[in-house]
Structures are given as structure tokens and as C-alpha cells.
Write a protein that binds this DNA or RNA. Structure first.
Lengths: 216, 216, 216, 216
DNA sequence: AATGAATGAGCGTTCATTCAT
DNA sequence: CATGAATGAACGCTCATTCAT
């Protein structure tokens, strides 16, 4: 990039134009982007950074993503899908009729999934744009939780004035608690999950129901 | 060195060098910035925009703020102070011994303060490369709430495994619910407050306590 | 995102995106920069000036040079290389054993090379925050001269207490004299060279040696 | 400079408007400027820096100097006057008729004066503007040296084809040698002076004259 | 598909200088 | 004399995007 072109006429460092399956290229680019976004923030990450890390030329990026924003969106969507899937697995591992267990499953699944990827979550959901409210990604997560709550309510385990609002409180409350734990650098999820389960159980229970005893 | 070709036909909007008390200038600039941040986002707002709206020269901005980031920080701090103050007033309007009332006071105060300024809050707390986790602004808000919870616990009204975590759930839960309401464009705080009070009361109460009846 | 309101009546001076060999672009940009530096000084020359003169876009400049300083450095290095090469040619044109001739060759070569490009030299070596002391460019020039002096000394033609110091006196003395001549606008190198040869010969000679007669 | 004006209505940190003799103010400002120029370079030193260091307000600077350039010029002139005066003292300390001694006096005086202030010299004569050639400051120094050379020539001690050119070689040669010594961090002036005296004596001497023996 | 040279609008920040008080 | 708030032109540099090859 300086005035130093000493390789003059002879071979230029082999541009190696290697065609790859589209999906792989996409994954490579998203992985590069994610790593850099986490490390430096979205704003501070340039397309040059991304392609350099992925080992491709600038133009290649624009073959797969129309704009920089598109990668962020793709990353965001993938994050949500992964999150929902993880949580789903955790819930389904519990007996269909034991709603305390299923709530506990949700809590464990959600806390762990979030704890595992909070850095990417942060950068992809906060650093960018100003519309964290109307996000279809969050909606998927909430919908999943609403389904759980309504099943519990239908089975008579819980009694809720508004399942959506309750779901929002659970989700954002969980977020806040885990964020705080991260900020204090205590990454052990167990105590978090225990207390969350205790408080959430009270909130969901029909009045007078005994709240579960805590393991720790 | 600049009074050269300025003798055009029309009156150039006289530079009007009007010295103002520092605090006033600061307020003007912060108000301009806030309005523009809300309207277009921080990134999209240029210093030129801000000073044009405030009716001063660019240099004047830098007389009061070292960087663009500084205005954001100042706005953020002011927002938190105002928030804490509003909520405090709402709580203190309730009998010292009636903790359900005081909780209700907190909910109403917080929901209203947030609803009144959520646009500025959004832009100033989310738009910007800002790890929402370790913010001293949020800490002030949480501390206030923790104080309320501990008073209630000391008085035997509530029983909590962890007041800080509970405070975080209350605060972030409230946030999530109000955000959702804003997204659905239903701005009436009353139903929100009612349901929040009901759910939160359950969560705080010692087991078996009767939760309050809801007004709406 | 910019092909919006461009459909005006006239042809906009078509952006003419002409890809060129890197070395050519570099040369163009350096030539533009040199001309402008000489004409207005480095400080006063803007990147916009340079690219306008070179007929490329601003970004193109930064494609080849990381900062404005980089062009200055590149120009400086190239100047020194050219200087050393010119002087080398002038010296080698003289008999290997005739050291008075070779000294004269150095003087003529140096004076002419400097006279031919002193404006660029000035601007590139003085205008800029540049400690003229520790420059590797000057070192190359001095090294060349030291080699000449040591050859002469080995051959018994000269007797010197310190070849490096002597070289510095020759080089800086030559500089001062030519600078002065330039300031007085007398550009004829011959009288300068004659007197320099006479004075320098005395300085280099073993005591008692007859100094050469001067041509002019 | 931030949004923190807590000293509100009460006393503002006493602006202490202290009138001083003009010359003193000038000296203070020049001293501040010199220190900062040496430390950070002229370009990088702002008027704000200078007045802050001098403990006065910005406007005060412009009472005493019309522009920033003016301080540089004033500093430059003062440097030259001091230089000429120092060298003059060193020369006059030697017998009027012993021209080798007087030359030695010039060398010692010049080397020491330069060594003592080279940092200020650098910054004030090199970092700025592009006309080191036509400087009346250098002329004063050269004139002094020419006077010495002509006296010596008139007395038959030296034989010179051109006293001005010789003076330039002596002065710039001395500069180059001292610069080099500074770059090598050897600050002992004695060896420098010895060799300079030896080489310069040869150059000045009528052919065949015995050059002085060196002390070290 | 892949490349990477070229584009150019745009922005934050600086700072010498002015002038009302 | 002295102050310091106010000015605003100027500039280096960035980087998402385009497109000829």
C-alpha cells in the first residue's frame, strides 16, 4: 500500500481465485464479521476488515451481502434461531406435565444460551440501529415463552393476568439479572437460576401455592 | 481574513456574537442535540446539525463539549438524575408503612417517567456503543429500588432471596413491558401498572400472602 | 445511493474510472504532490489539491499513501536515491587514481544535482517537522562521500583527522554555498565549483601539497 | 469545559487581572512559547497552550503579538543576537593579531553557543516556513565571520578566493559536524573543536603554511 | 464467481483570530 | 490593559459501495 512494488513484472502473490459453495462463503463472512463485531464493535469494523479476515476480496463480500447492515441482520436472525432452539431443547427435556420443571428448563436454557453468546448478542442487538423494540427476533423468543405459559395456565398450574406481559417480564428480567452477573464477573449460572426460579415461580403461581424449594 | 467578498447584495444573517451564561449555552446545545438524536439517531446527527439548530457556530460547541460523545454522556447522566428524582417523588407521596402502595408508587413513577422520555432514553442508552451492563446511571436507579425493597423486607412486608436481583427483574421487566406497549402504540399506563403491580406483588410477597386487588 | 439527482442537463465530467498500474498512479501522485509542495509548501498543500492535479478521486490518494506524511517521505527517499546516483555517475567519469579530479567530480555532481532540484529538496527536507539530524537519507549521501575520502587517503592523496567529519563539512559547506548563490540568484555553477574545489583541496591535502590551479 | 458549573452564583476563581510591564509580559510569553515549541514543535503548539503556560488570557497574547508567526520571528531574532554576542565575546578574548587563536575562538564560541541551544534553534529555524536561505538572522552571523576572515586576510594570515563563500563553508560545516555529534549523543565539544580547527586552518592558510598542532 | 482499484460525499475536530465587556 | 466566549473556514481522513476486468 506504500510506494513499494518490488515484485514488479514477476509473479504477483497468486490471487488464488477459489470458487466455493455459496453457503460456505456466507458462513465464512458471517464468522469473520461476528468475531470482529465482538472485538471492535460494528461501527468500527470495516468491510475491509471483514474480507481481510475471511481471506477474500472486497467485491466478494458484495456478492453475498448487499450492504453491511445485511450481515448484522443475518447474524441477528441466526442468533435468535439458535437461542430458541437451545431453549426448546432444554424445555423438552422436562416432563410435559411438570410446569415447574419446564419453567426451570426455560430458565436454565435461556441463561446458558445467553451466557454463552452474550458478546455477540450485545453487539448485534444493541450497538446498532434504534429499534430494539419492534424486532421480529425477540418476538420469536417471546412467542416460545408465551406458549409455555399458556400451557401451564391451561393445565391449572399457573394463573396469569396477561401471558405476554408476563413473558416479557420473565425474559427481560432474566436478561437484566444475567447482565448484572456478567458485569460482576460471576459466571456461575446455578445460583442465578435458583433465585430466578424461586421469584418467577411465585409470580406465576396461583395465590397460595407453595413455591419450590431451591437446590443450592 | 474573511471580510473579503462578503459585501454581497443581501444582509448576511449577522454573526450576532451574543455571550451567554455558560449554563444556558450548555442547555441550549444539549436540547438541540437531544431533539436531533431522537429524530435521526446519534450517528446520523452531525455537529453541524446541532449548532445550526442552536444557532451558534461550530466552534462554540467545542467550547463546551470536547467531543460528540460528551453530549451523549451529559444527556445520559441528566436523564438518570431526572428519572430517579421523578420516581422518588412518586414513592414519597405514599404512606411510609404501606409497602404495596410504595411499590405501586414506584411502578407508576417509573412507567410514567419512562413513557414520557423513552425516545431520548432509547437513543441515549442504546444507539451508542455502550455496554449497557456496567453503567453507573443504571446503578443509581437500581440502588433506589433496592432501598425500597430492603425497607419492605425489614418491615416484614416482603421476603426476598436477593434484593439486587429482584430489583433488576423489576426494573428490566418493567422496561420490557413498557417497550412492548410502546411498540404496540398503546400508551395508556394504567393497565400496564395494574398488571405489573399484581405480578410484582406476588413475586415479592411472603408465600401465602394475598395479592392486592387490581383497580382496572 | 448517489445516482439520485444526477440527471441534470449537462454531462457531468464523467468519472472516468481508469485503472492504472500501481506504479504509474504512484508516480502521478508523487509528481502532483512535488509540484504543489514546491509551489505552496507542504502545509499549504491539501490532499484535495494533490488529487485534483492528478485527476483522481481523494480516495485514490489514500489507496496508495496512508497519510500525507507518507508522500513526503517517499519523495524524500527518491530524492536521495537520485542524488546519490547522479553524483556517483559524475565521480565515476573521472580516472580512478586522480583524486583531485574525483573530488572535482563530486563537487560538480553534487552542485548540479542540488541546483537542479533544490526547490524540491528544500520543501521536502526542511518544511516539515523533521529533525534534519538523524536522517537515513543524508547518511547515504555522507557514506558515499566518506568512501571517496577514504580511498583518497589510502592512496596517500589526502590526510584527514576524521573522514566523517570532513565529509560533513564538505557536504554542508557545499550546501551553504549553493543556498547562498540561489538566494543571490546567481545560478552559474562554475565559479562555485572552482572555489569549492580550491578550498576543499586545501583542507584535504597533506600539509605543503600544492593546491590545484583553477580553470575559471 | 464540561457541563459542570457548580460554582454557580458564588465567586468565580478570581480572574486576577494583573497589569505587568509590557516587556515582562513579552518575555513571559516568549519563554512559554519557546519551551512549548521545543517540546512539541511549533505547529503542534497552540495559542491556548502558550497562554495557559504563561498564566494569562488568550486575548493578552494578541496584545503583544499580532500573529503566532510573530513570536517565532521574535524568538529567531533573539536567538541570532545571542549567538552573535556569545561568539563575539569568545573571539575578543583572543589576541587581536593571533588569527589562529581568533579562528579557534570563533569555533569554540560557535560550537558552544549552538550546542547550548540547538533545540530552540532547530525548532525556530527549521520547523517553520520555507526560506532558510534568505534569512537576515543568518546574515548577521555570516557578516561577523566575514569580518574575521577579512581581517586575517588583510593581516596576511590567510589567503582566500572568496570570504563570503568561505564563511558559509565554515558556518554550515560547523553546523553539520555539531548536528552529527548531537545525533550520536556525544556532547563533548573539545574533540569537535580540535578537528574543526585543524581542517579549517588548512583551508584558510596560504599554501605551504604549517597547520597548528592539535591539543587532544 | 471473484477481484481490488477507484470513487467521493461526508464528518469530526482544530485553532488562529476577533471583539464585547 | 485584560479577558475568554465566540467564530467559522479549513482539512485530513474514512469507508461503504461500484464496476471494469
Amino acid at each position: 500500500m506504500n510506494a513499494s512494488a518490488n515484485l514488479s513484472t514477476e509473479r504477483r502473490s497468486r490471487p488464488r481465485r477459489r470458487t466455493l459453495p455459496a453457503e460456505m462463503r456466507t458462513d465464512d463472512l458471517m464468522a469473520s464479521a461476528a468475531a470482529l463485531f465482538v472485538a471492535k464493535g460494528i461501527e468500527a469494523t470495516t468491510i475491509d476488515d471483514i474480507v481481510a479476515r475471511a481471506g477474500v476480496a472486497k467485491g466478494t463480500f458484495y456478492h453475498y451481502f448487499a450492504t453491511k447492515t445485511d450481515v448484522v441482520l443475518a447474524l441477528r436472525e441466526r442468533f435468535s434461531q439458535d437461542f430458541v432452539r437451545s431453549v426448546s431443547v432444554a424445555i423438552e427435556a422436562c416432563p410435559v406435565t411438570d410446569f415447574t420443571a419446564r419453567l426451570s428448563g426455560w430458565i436454565h436454557g435461556a441463561v446458558q444460551a445467553y451466557l454463552a453468546n452474550f458478546k455477540l448478542h450485545d453487539v448485534v442487538f444493541h450497538d446498532f440501529s434504534h429499534s430494539h423494540r419492534q424486532s421480529k427476533e425477540k418476538d420469536a423468543v417471546i412467542a416460545q415463552l408465551v406458549a409455555l405459559l399458556e400451557a401451564g395456565q391451561a393445565a391449572g398450574a399457573w394463573s396469569l393476568p396477561d401471558t405476554r406481559m408476563t413473558a416479557l417480564i420473565l425474559f427481560d428480567g432474566m436478561h437484566g439479572v444475567v447482565d448484572d452477573a456478567i458485569a460482576r464477573e460471576s459466571r456461575d449460572p446455578q445460583p442465578l437460576c435458583d433465585i430466578l426460579l424461586q421469584l418467577f415461580s411465585r409470580m406465576l403461581s396461583v395465590d397460595g401455592t407453595i413455591s419450590p424449594r431451591v437446590s443450592g
